[in-house]
Amino acid sequence: MMISKILQQVALMKRIKRQVQEYVYGNSLTIIVRIAIGLLFVYSSIFKIIDPSGFANSIAQYRILSDNLLPYAAIVIPYIELFAGICLLMGFNIRPAAIAGIILMLMFITAIIINLAQGRTFECGCFELSNLGISETIGWGLLVRDAIITMLLWSLYYVDRHPFSLQNLVLKSDIHNM
């Protein structure tokens, strides 16, 4: 009884390990994660680019940046999102894009934690998902979601091969021409 349970667990661990190996080697899950995060970044950046003052207002809610720094943040952040998103989506410079994304996400997470600690709640305006009917009110759920996105970006950093990406295409043609 005990032994069979342990064996079951070992088998499960092996399966997880195998999944992770496959993920790192590059399987369909790798593609899905990369493209999903890329799309999320591009999607959210477009709304911020179209309406910069609206985005500045939502940063202002966090009460972290002073008023004269707000426009600079509102100018810079959407484009970092856009560029990182495009890189992830098209599949080139994936590691740098992942790092840029992680830096952004860590900034968002810090901002959310600071405001949660002060007990303030409001629409965060992070990914503009309210346009799709998904509530984005500041809270633990949002923190967990951002943490998951950060982890996924981090995992993308360790992936050796990204199938269905530009850099893989170039790699393949290089090997072909050798």
Partner: peptide, 13 residues
Amino acid sequence: RALLLMLLASGTG
């Protein structure tokens, strides 16, 4: 490279 990407993005911004 990531910093360069962010710099490029900021410039575009």
